[in-house]
Design a protein around this nucleic acid. Sequence first.
DNA 1: CTTGACTCTAGACTTGTATCAAGGGTCTAG
DNA 2: CTAGACCCTTGATACAAGTCTAGAGTCAAG
Lengths: 141, 141
Amino acid sequence: MDTASSSLTIGAVAKRVGVAIDTIRFYEREGLLPEPLRRASGYRSYGEGTIAQLRFIRRAKHLGFTLEEIRELLALSTDRRLGVRAVKQRAQQRLEAIEQRIAELQRVRDGLAQLVESCPGHGAPEQCPILLALTEEESQA
Amino acid sequence: MDTASSSLTIGAVAKRVGVAIDTIRFYEREGLLPEPLRRASGYRSYGEGTIAQLRFIRRAKHLGFTLEEIRELLALSTDRRLGVRAVKQRAQQRLEAIEQRIAELQRVRDGLAQLVESCPGHGAPEQCPILLALTEEESQA
DNA sequence: CTTGACTCTAGACTTGTATCAAGGGTCTAG
DNA sequence: CTAGACCCTTGATACAAGTCTAGAGTCAAG
């Protein structure tokens, strides 16, 4: 349980977090990770904090945040005044976006399910409800 | 109700379908639309069929099909032997993909909703459940 | 000291779906 | 006949989030 900043190479970090080396360098360029210390050779030298931060990024990505939003979350997460309020607000926005997306997909699913159900799976293309639905005029849903 | 192939310019088609001119040329390059007739001047000359086909593409896109899949649907839609069966199959696959996506988003939503609910919206960053969840070790979900 | 695995940089490439720009030719209303 | 709107082609650009390459330097083990 050593939380001290031991010295990890980029490859070791990548392996521990389960992310590609290139991705780490990419995040650094994009400002999602601070510039690390360097050995004399120029090799990047990371501590445990980087592992935590990469996991933060991964989890946030999994919750559907974009890298842009994650960059903001990372900044907020250290702001003692506004941080928590703003973080909650962003999370709520994300939640709403997800709910909208779900609702939209459900509408699409219902439409498609109905078509699939009503299609016999054989016969003339002119009678296939799926093809008809795709071809039909707007007027009737 | 004139279904004959009147002669439409690309701009007229674009306006009627509600799609950009560039998109029409792009679809042509991508094989989603057949190469149209040309006037002596080189102008593309379209009939009503193109309008229908563009609407087909738009509806299929709205159902979540990729352009690649739509290209295939278009080919299948004119196959009198296998068309209907194959179209139904593709629609079913699409449906399953959509349902998986919905389920995944619902999991994400539930997790995020719980976090948002449990966050007071003020106080120290170290106590914010959202930030904690993003930072925490894997062990407990 | 050599070998093989690792790392460095800069920059090009990927995927999907378009959208835009440059530099020209055409069509139509007045 | 001319102005303005429209169309042509080719090739570049955009977005997100990486992924890959080339060519060179470094590290650890035997």
